[in-house]
Nucleic acid binder design. Sequence first.
RNA 1: CGGGGCGUAGCGCAGCCUGGUAGCGCACCUGCCUUGGGCGCAGGGGGUCGUAGGUUCGAAUCCUAUCGCCCCGACCA
Length: 590
Amino acid sequence: MHRWSTLFIPTLREAPADAEVASHKLLVRSGYIRQLGAGIYSYLFLGQRSINKIIGIVRREMDTIGQEFLLPALHPRELWEASGRWAVMGDNMFRLKDRKGADLCLGMTHEEVMTDIARKELRSYKQLPQIWYQIQTKFRDEPRPKSGLLRVRQFIMKDAYSFDIDAAGLDVSYQKHRDVYCRIFDDCGLKYMVIEAHSGAMGGSQSEEFMVRTPAGEDQVVSCDQCNYAANLEKATSKLDAVQDLAPEGDGLPMEVHTPAMKTIEDVSKFLGISPKNNIKTLAYMATEMDAKTGKSSLRQVVVFMRGDHPLNESKFSTALQGREFRPMVEDEIKSLFGSPAGYLGPRGIEFADVLSGSGKAVLLVDDALKGRVNLVGGANKEEYHLKNLTPGRDFTPTAYADLRAAAAGEGCPNCGAPLRIDTAVEIGHIFKLGYKYSESMNARVLDHNGKEVAPIMGSYGIGIERILTSAIEQNNDDNGFCLPPQIAPFEVVVTPTNVKDAALAAVADDLARQFEAAGFDVILDDRDERPGVKFKDADLVGIPYRVTVGKKASDGVVEVVNRAQKETLDVKIEEAVKHLGSLLRPGKF
RNA sequence: CGGGGCGUAGCGCAGCCUGGUAGCGCACCUGCCUUGGGCGCAGGGGGUCGUAGGUUCGAAUCCUAUCGCCCCGACCA
């Protein structure tokens, strides 16, 4: 039996001064974790116990669809060269050399290692599908670790990889993971959402994230309270109210108008007495083009037109550029393309490319919100002048239309039209249809039923173990501490005698704790010679969902069962305590 | 990488401006006392003042460099 008096549970009255978010303060105060360096933490007794319970749930559920492996954390450079990610990962990858000078890195994810196994071992469609997973430590040299365990440089991830013969098979593997993830997070007692996610520069056809709403989160989630629409801001769309186009002026063709010192959309709109919605916002970027053969990079001009009141979403922009890196143009670059300083930029006089890559011409990406609009106002590419009557398709031809706009709270849900909300959230899981990226680049091949060599199609699926703990704490804490769902708490119940010097009380408490243990509850006996207040405070702090107080009423055969989360106390007869707790912890079994 | 802040006992902080015995609260140890919400009394232990160099008779304090940590931003398969 676990006796508090013999355990190392270093609780603190005060939180470290540099802790900002609730879970960070409380994990340190409750003696779950201690910091070793920026984004590097030790998990002490209670922390590790809780992590182990979370891992237990993840493993139990993952075993219903896949097979557990354990891959190395130390990877040779060659493996990452094969997928092309040795260069792509940049400073986020921890790199080191061995004694012979060979380059190694610490694994930040394991597509490469898994694919390496697949390419060496899988030969036939008959061996597919496969789902392989592991629960293992990942290393990522984050530019800015923060918020305790929420953003760290070393953490535990459950990562899974599926190999299928075709897209239909991948759909099945993907759905299996989606279902299992829901069971896992339900079992962990989390309130979460499944949202559409940005597939990222890696391509991939579909991706969903499992998100927990909390102010401590770093992601922004757009969701609808009326229907089930939910998406990452990087991906979210919205319905816009119809906009009244301006009537044509003069002959209806682009017409110069003098706009002295009117550089911003706001200034121009006011000056001309129009809405920013009738303006074109012109943004100018330089994208990096990589020559596949020579590996040489060159710069490419990219112009973006948005509706005047709309912000650009850089993730969508990156997708539209097919992953090319980009940066804003500097002043000289603007002048050389537009012939005008910023503030008066527009389409006039520029011949844009008709395709994204190939020609050396500037690329023009136009946001979907401008499709079908007429008589817009934009810069004239001439200092202190704008143009009226600008109409896409007639006065300029986009290289492509694209969804580039960031959705905003209050705009209409794309499904049902109800107002959208935007919340911050923590990403606890991500499932991803990878496609052929790794099997192609790393040359994994199996024979299909026609005897033809094909690349298996892959999926990858991740769960951040620590983030389950942190988001559970973020969702359920108060001034006294936090309360974890019993399934992931380090203990399910603490038995607290109010005075261990009182032999009768101590005996009742000891006996009760033994009964709980015999009944299969995860129990800790707080047998410390401390005042009751100290023990109550500690019990409240460390997240144990139930406390059984053995005090004055014990002589009448009664103990108190305290529900930490509800802050409710119930008197229970000692001989019924096991049954009562059983009904709380193991519904249906007692 | 840009901006800001902080490094003094395990935790939270004062002292620094104006150089001269290193301090407070909590925690810890001993004894007594107390026992339903971090109790009280008495005694005690613990600090290369992040590190290195400089100025000075003398540096926690002034100067220079450097390292670490935190926050904002950039970034984030």
